[in-house]
């Protein structure tokens, strides 16, 4: 009896544990490279994002651009940013001339994080267990990556944001939507400082 023909569009399962180990290692590399500069180290952030992007590509996470993904992403961005504005107001103390370069870096880092967390990792966990586990695992990983950079007190807020981004992933069916939301929220943060 011959083997069944491969089904078009079905990607092979990615092992979850090595994927999480690789993610933890990427965070460790970022922290190690950054030293005291922490989140303010562009080279460390670039290396981190490059590693995540490479892992996402290895696992077959594809960039899908659609109106639905864009709409979900924008709505999610509003949901995330509004409480921050209500809490902090708009301050704009940072120099506008530095915004473009910073924005490019932010798009790369946040985009790579989403390609991995709500792309490759989400798919792997969903295939291994279920969609609920995928939302939770991705949210916990998202929150955990911020702890070495900002401290434990950011865990609750970043976990909540991770859940919202996971919901966006579910609603849109692609990591592009949470990427749009994540990038938008980060860019908006510039104007809240």
């Amino acid at each position: 009896m011959s083997a069944p023909a491969p089904t078009a569009g079905i990607r092979p399962a990615v092992p979850v544990v090595p994927l999480l180990a690789a993610f933890a290692a990427a965070v460790a590399v970022r922290v190690a490279l950054a030293g005291v500069a922490g989140a303010s180290s562009p080279p460390a952030a670039i290396v981190f994002a490059a590693v995540l992007a490479a892992l996402a590509a290895l696992c077959g996470a594809r960039l899908t651009v659609s109106r639905r993904a864009a709409a979900v992403g924008v709505v999610t961005a509003v949901v995330i940013v509004v409480p921050a504005v209500a809490h902090a107001g708009v301050a704009m103390t940072l120099p506008v001339r530095a915004f473009p370069a910073w924005a490019v870096l932010t798009v790369f880092v946040a985009g790579a994080e989403e390609a991995f967390l709500r792309g490759a990792l989400f798919d792997a966990v969903q295939r291994r267990w279920n969609v609920h586990a995928a939302v939770v695992v991705a949210a916990v990983a998202f929150a955990a990556l911020h702890v070495p950079l900002y401290g434990w007190h950011v865990l609750p807020l970043d976990l909540a944001v991770g859940l919202v981004l996971g919901a966006a992933r579910l609603a849109a069916g692609t990591w592009t939507a949470p990427a749009i939301a994540h990038i938008s929220a980060d860019l908006a943060g510039w104007w809240l400082l």
């Binding site: 303010s40 932010t106 946040a110 911020h146 900002y150 980060d186």
Partner: peptide, 10 residues
């Protein structure tokens, strides 16, 4: 709390 994330500005 730091607003979400994004590479910090030096």
């Amino acid at each position: 709390v730091p607003i979400y994330d994004g590479p910090g500005f030096a």
